[in-house]
Nucleic acid binder design. Structure first.
Length: 585
RNA sequence: GGACCCGUAGCUCAGCUGGAUAGAGCGCUGCCCUCCGAAGGCAGAGGUCGUACGUUCGAAUCGUAUCGGGUCCGCCA
C-alpha cells in the first residue's frame, strides 16, 4: 500500500466535505494538489500544497484554507500533529506505529511489495535493442538492452501490461550486403582464397557463418547466380546471427518476448496499409525538399518525392516514404511497424533507441500520432553513449580494424549483474562511463557493491540469528506475526522504515516517468541508511541487531532486517539483478 | 544553417514532473577507531544550479533568447 496515496484520498474527501459545507466553492480543480514527503524531514512526514494551489480558485488566502484543512486533518486517526508552515504548506506527522506497520506489510508482501496498480488496464509496448542482424551485439548495445528490459519490468511492477519487443531490420540494403559478405566466406570455407572488398562486412564472425553454410549445403551455390544464392546466404546469415544475439541477450538476462520481422511486415502488406491510411487523411503529397543548410550539398539534386506531412504534427520537415526506385523507405516501414504494435493492443509505445537516433524521434512521433488517429502515443528513450574505460583510460575500438568490444566480452569480464546495475546508474540521456576496473571494485563509490553488500549484511545477520537459535523461525510471515514492532524506536530505525515505506511511491513515479534508473538511486539510498544503522552498532552495542539479553527487541530488529532485504531484493528484481546472500573476495 | 540531448560542489552525478535552507559519492580538512558484525566511522569546508529576461504565491525544474559540449541532418537502417 502506498501511504501517500491513502492520505491523498483522505484529503480529497475533506476537500469535498468543505465544499459541500460551503467553506470552499464547489467544483475546484484538484489536479495540482499533491501529498508528498517534504524535502526536509524536519517539516514532517507528509506535506500538502493544497492551500497554495487552491487559494486563487477559492478566492481565499492560503493560510485560511490551510487552517480549515488542518482542523480536519487533525481528526484523522493516524495523524499526531498538523502544522501550517511557510507560505501555506500543511505538514502532517504520523504516529510511529503507522510507520512501523509498514514493516509488517513488507514481510507479508515479500518481493511483491511495491507492486502498484496505476498501470491497470493500460498496455505498453517497450521496444528495445532492435540491433541490425548483421553482426553480434557490441558493448554499446548493453545500455539499451538493460534500460529497456528494466523499464519493462518496472512498468509491470506498477501494474501495466507490457510487451517486450525486438524489431528485426531484416529488409533493405544492409542485409543484402550481409548476404554477399556471407557468400564470400562461404566460398572461403570451401577452399577459395577471398578478399573482402570495402563496403562488405569484414568481421571474423562471418567466417563461422560461411563455414556453417558450407557444412549444410556443400558446394551447391558455387556456380549458382546471385539471384539464386543471395536469398539463401542472406536468410541463413540473419538466422545464425540472430541466434547469437538471442543467446547474448539471454545471458544478459534480457528477455524480449516478441521478435518482429521488418521483412515479414512488408510482405504482409502492412506498409501499403499504413500508407493508404495516411493517403485517406490527406497527409501524403508529392513535393521537393529543400537541401539541408550548412551541410555540404555534395550531390544534392532537387527531386520530387512522396512525402508525409510530418510538419502538421510538429516535425521540422515533411519526410519521404518512397525511394526513387519505388520501394519503401525505412521510415515508411517503421510507420507500419508502429501501427502494427498499436493494433496489437498497445496504446502506449516506448522505443529505446541509441544516441544516433535522436533526430529520428520527432518524425516517428508525428507518424504514430497520425497513423493511430491520435489514440497512440510514442515515448522515445534515447540512450546516450557509453564510454568504456580501463582504469580511466579509454578502451580503443575501431570498427574498421574489427577491434570492437562485444557485449559478450563485457559480460564475461564483469558479470551480468554488474553490467545491468551500472547501466542503470545514469539517466538514459546522460553519457555513461563504464570503467572495467571501477565497476568490480569493492568500495562505497561502487553502487553495485554497496547495494549488494547491504543485502548480504542482512542475510548475514539472519544467518547468525539462526545459528544462535536453530529453533527460531525467520520466515517473514512468522516474523510479521511475532515481532513487537513498537520496540523499533530509535530515530535511525524509524528513518529506515520511512524510507522503505516510500518504495511503492518510488515505483509509481518512476513508472510514470518511464525512468528505471530511479530504482538504482533509491536502492543506493536505502543501502546507505542500512549501513548507517549497522555502523551505529559498532560503537553502541545496544544498537546491534542481535542482543542476547533482549530477545523481544532482537526479534523486532530481525523483522526490520528481513524487511530491508526484501525491499532491496524487490528493487534488484526490477533491475534484473540477482541479490547476493554473501560477498566473496 | 537546423533539430534533439546535456550544462548543478574541484571531479562523477542525483534532484521525486513547480515547492520551504539545492543533495550523494569521490577528493579535500579535522577528529576518532584498529573493533573482527568483511566497504573503516564521525564531523566540516566547498554552489549567485552556464548566462539573461519572462511566466507566478514560489523556478535547478516551465517559456524565450544566448553561450559551451555531444548526437544527428533527402531515397542508410
Amino acid at each position: 500500500m502506498n501511504l501517500f496515496n491513502e492520505f491523498a484520498k483522505d484529503l480529497r474527501v475533506i476537500l469535498d466535505d468543505l465544499a459541500t459545507g460551503g467553506d470552499l466553492p464547489a467544483g475546484l480543480d484538484l489536479s495540482k494538489v499533491t501529498v508528498e514527503p517534504p524535502r526536509d524531514p524536519s517539516h514532517g512526514d507528509l506535506s500538502t500544497n493544497s492551500a497554495l494551489v487552491l487559494s486563487k480558485q477559492a478566492g481565499r488566502k492560503p493560510r485560511d484554507i490551510a487552517e480549515l484543512l488542518a482542523a480536519r486533518l487533525r481528526a484523522l486517526p493516524d495523524v499526531t500533529s498538523v502544522e501550517i508552515a511557510g507560505p501555506g504548506f500543511v505538514n502532517l506527522r504520523l504516529s510511529d506505529d503507522t510507520w512501523r506497520e509498514r514493516v509488517g506489510d513488507i514481510l507479508v508482501a515479500g518481493v511483491t511489495y511495491g507492486n502498484g496498480s496505476i498501470g491497470a488496464g493500460i498496455a505498453v509496448n517497450v521496444e528495445y535493442v532492435s540491433a541490425n542482424p548483421t553482426g553480434p551485439l557490441h558493448a554499446a548495445h548493453a545500455r539499451g538492452a538493460v534500460v529497456g528490459d528494466a523499464l519493462a519490468s518496472l512498468l509491470e511492477k506498477a501494474g501495466y501490461t507490457v510487451t517486450r519487443e525486438y524489431y528485426i531490420n531484416d529488409a533493405g540494403a544492409q542485409v543484402e550486403v550481409l548476404g554477399r559478405s556471407t557468400y564470400l566466406r562461404y566460398r572461403e570455407a570451401l577452399g577459395e582464397t577471398v578478399e573482402i572488398p570495402a563496403g562488405m562486412y569484414p568481421g571474423e564472425y562471418l567466417k563461422d557463418v560461411g563455414a556453417a553454410l558450407a557444412e549444410r549445403d556443400g558446394a551447391k551455390w558455387l556456380d549458382a547466380s546471385e539471384a539464386d544464392w543471395l536469398p539463401v546466404t542472406r536468410d541463413f546469415a540473419i538466422e545464425q546471427i540472430l541466434a547469437g544475439i538471442k543467446q547474448d541477450l539471454a545471458d544478459l538476462g534480457v528477455r524480449n518476448q516478441v521478435f518482429s520481422s521488418e521483412r515479414a511486415l512488408i510482405a504482409s502488406g502492412a506498409v501499403e496499409d499504413a500508407y493508404q491510411s495516411l493517403v485517406e487523411q490527406d497527409l501524403i503529397y508529392t513535393g521537393v525538399l529543400e537541401p539541408p543548410k550548412g551541410k555540404k550539398p555534395d550531390h544534392w539534386e532537387p527531386r520530387p518525392q512522396t512525402l508525409f506531412r510530418a510538419t502538421q504534427f510538429g516535425d521540422d520537415v515533411d519526410r519521404p516514404l518512397k525511394k526513387s526506385d519505388g520501394s519503401w523507405t525505412y521510415f515508411a516501414n517503421d510507420i507500419a511497424y508502429h501501427l502494427d504494435k498499436y493494433r496489437r493492443g498497445s496504446s502506449v509505445l516506448i522505443d529505446v533507441l541509441g544516441a544516433d537516433h535522436g533526430g529520428y524521434v520527432k518524425r516517428m512521433q508525428a507518424a504514430t500520432t497520425a497513423v493511430t488517429g491520435g489514440q497512440g502515443s510514442l515515448d522515445a528513450k534515447i540512450c546516450q553513449l557509453v564510454h568504456l574505460l580501463q582504469n580511466g583510460e579509454p578502451v580503443k575500438m575501431s570498427k574498421r580494424a574489427g577491434t570492437f568490444v562485444t557485449l559478450r566480452d563485457v559480460i564475461d569480464q564483469v558479470g551480468r549483474d554488474v553490467v545491468r546495475f551500472i547501466m542503470l546508474t545514469r539517466r538514459n540521456d546522460q553519457t555513461l562511463e563504464f570503467d572495467f576496473a571501477k565497476v568490480t571494485e569493492q568500495s562505497k563509490d561502487n553502487p553495485v557493491f554497496y547495494v549488494q553488500y547491504a543485502h548480504a549484511r542482512c542475510c548475514s545477520v539472519l544467518r547468525h540469528a539462526q545459528d544462535a537459535d536453530p529453533a527460531r523461525s525467520l520466515a517473514p510471515e512468522d516474523l510479521a506475526a511475532t515481532a513487537v514492532l513498537a520496540r523499533l524506536s530509535s530515530p535511525e530505525e524509524l528513518e529506515l522504515i520511512k524510507l522503505m515505506a516510500s518504495w511503492p511511491r518510488v515505483v509509481e513515479s518512476a513508472a510514470q516517468a518511464h525512468e528505471a534508473h530511479r530504482i538504482a538511486f533509491y536502492l543506493y539510498d536505502l543501502a546507505g541508511a542500512f549501513h548507517g544503522l549497522w555502523n551505529k552498532g559498532k560503537d553502541d552495542t545496544t544498537m546491534r541487531f542481535l542482543l542476547d539479553e533482549d530477545p523481544e527487541l532482537t526479534t523486532a530488529r530481525l523483522a526490520l532486517v528481513k524487511a530491508v532485504s526484501i525491499v532491496i531484493a524487490s528493487g534488484l528484481d526490477v533491475m534484473g539483478v540477482e541479490p547476493v546472500e554473501e560477498l566473496r573476495g
